[in-house]
Amino acid sequence: MIRASIVGASGYAGGELLRLLLAHPHVEVSQITSETYAGQYAYFLHPNLRGHTDLRFVRLADLKPCDLLFLALPHGQAMDRIDDFASLAERIIDLSADFRLRDPADYPRWYGREHPAPRWLDRFVYGMPELHREELRTARYASGTGCNAIVTLLALWPLYRRGLVREAVVDLKVGSSEGGSKPTPASHHPERAGVVRTYAPVRHRHLAELIQELDLDPADPGLHLSITSVGIVRGALATCHCLLKEDLDERAVWRIYREDYADEPFVRLVRARRGIHRYPEPKILTGSNYCDIGFAADPGHRRLVVVAAIDNLMKGAAGNAVQTMNVMYSWPERTGLEFPGLHPI
């Protein structure tokens, strides 16, 4: 049993993490922090946890040493205090973007500020077990992944690592929880309800992670993201329009994805000729850590459409962080993550 604490547990990712860790057989949650809600019971902010914990939020200044610190702060805060956090815990998993990128120059380029602790960037492993499992087994520090980045990476990794893609355009439809728990005029219900709102047609920040992890040329990556908010709370669906170097038939695509993902505990191939959902559907993944991936070839046009779905708070954030923890501690990766989602929902 390890003792873990969550810094920034009042947000959606922090709350989801708390839900998962409370049910995890090898973790005791020691403390949860929030400056705004210090002293309050967690279940007033995360009402699904009533009856599951009597933990109250504490201030960051009252944080005590533990075995593992999860950092679920807004981007830009963990990087300012990383030395302090490292003095409190042997291991850290940071869900923010602060330690995802290896090149310090990427931070002013994509996040608008210099990184204050660039020497820490090499110490963090990009927290995606499917790509970095062996490094994570011995890592003390792991980053999270961008929710849009991880769903796109899982969709495209098998194709890019084989050099099959000439260019790709990824159209992401995402739920409102990606925007976090702090309200804005744009998230006010009369404005947000029912939208199909394209808010990042080009240059979304998560492209930086894709360039890094797929080893693309930053000046001309040949990979394009467009993000659209839709009227769901949880979920991200990546529709990846891949223009291939050569035609691929679907049997070949099946073989490629099976070869890479057959043993992955949280990747499923969904390209069904029967059933209700014949391609990946985020709705049925709510609360689960799965990434479902499907595809359709367009024979004769060297085009392949890959479709991938996740729950952005699970495989896109807290669930993936718990999976990363399981790898770091050599526990079975599914531990604490067995929930299969709901149907109907």
């Binding site: 099946w254 191939l269 390209r271 069904a272 000729r273 029967r274 059933g275």
Partner: peptide
């Protein structure tokens, strides 16, 4: 028979 992966008959 039904293919367990793609569901085709």
């Amino acid at each position: 028979l039904v293919c367990p992966d793609c569901g085709v008959e």
